[in-house]
Design a protein around this nucleic acid. Sequence first.
DNA 1: AAATGTGAAATCATTCACAGCA
DNA 2: TGCTGTGAATGATTTCACATTT
Lengths: 209, 209
Amino acid sequence: METFEVPEVVVLRLPLYVRALTQLLADEMEVVSSQQLGNRLQMTPAQIRKDLSYFGRFGKQGRGYNVHFLLAELRQILGLDREWCACLIGVGRLGRAIINYPGFTPQAFNVVAAFDNDPDQVGQAFGRLTVQPMSELPETIAARDIRIGIVAVPASHAQTVIDALVQNNVQGILNYAPIAPQVPMGIVMRNIDPVLSLQSMTFYLQQMD
Amino acid sequence: METFEVPEVVVLRLPLYVRALTQLLADEMEVVSSQQLGNRLQMTPAQIRKDLSYFGRFGKQGRGYNVHFLLAELRQILGLDREWCACLIGVGRLGRAIINYPGFTPQAFNVVAAFDNDPDQVGQAFGRLTVQPMSELPETIAARDIRIGIVAVPASHAQTVIDALVQNNVQGILNYAPIAPQVPMGIVMRNIDPVLSLQSMTFYLQQMD
DNA sequence: AAATGTGAAATCATTCACAGCA
DNA sequence: TGCTGTGAATGATTTCACATTT
């Protein structure tokens, strides 16, 4: 019943539970059933119970789950009870939007450094950060215990940047460039690509005609 | 062998093939095997062949797939051989980054209108667009044949905006707000949420300690 | 000789259904 | 009574393996 082999799909859903529970907590709801949670998230109660059962027994029969308790447990399971330092590569329009995105910090993620190869950008200040040249990547990653890299460079440069991050022991990469990155086993990749989302959407839209 | 019931996971992968083939075409490669494509995309050749087989027979035994031909077929299957008009709701930092994002237009998506409820924003010009008040949503959607809505408003307003889009016959929604949207059946939702991606990443990162 | 297309097999994920507990 | 936790059943997806074609 412990972390032996949790399916990845399950891990991908845990943050959804964290978010829903956070809202419920803000609404001062004390207890929630898998049924209620399922309504909010548009999923079946059975799936929620099964997912949670991979990690332990968090509920009370006949009653449901204590919101505060379950949230704390899930945050701990996901490692959200500590702060994760990330660096950003690429301070173009997208990169600057990421620096200023207010959603990371309250969620255990802290972008502590920004890099760019463009000499015009280096030295510029955005938010709390001053843009550093790529040559400072190794020392900064080591010094600030950076485990996550956020890639916001053009597609043509993305694989090179990803290679550099991997070389410097970054373990997780959030990639915004529209490429299919090649990384060694053990590196955790997440891709953000709105165009892919739209392109699969239209398959269904055209059937409505 | 025709569009009878194609699994959604398959549809979600087609855009990956489109992108890889587009690159191969740019590299002037004429023929590609499922093996080679699989290497690029880090997936098995069998999966690629099976996916494609839901839509027809595009390859030549002993040889592989003609890049140009397969790309054209896939683009047609996904409805990317036409232009799709979208509107943006919310022209804060994120919304402005979306307006200026150069990746949509070359891929059959055209953001033709931008809305915001903030009176200070209405009338402002961003790129080719002038921000309109939400009250103009219905007429603009109808007049410009907008089928897709892109939601870039704060979480607190997102469900209201989504409801308005649905009310006005938008069929697909690309949602950047960190919520679990409620939409009627038949509406195609895609969510972009980097925080969720990071929160599932850390589950694996903490195991490396 | 090489690679597709595809039934069949294997694996993986979801849902069911109910014993057990508050 | 109401809801959890979970094996068992079902359903979906991936992979295998090979006949077939160029």
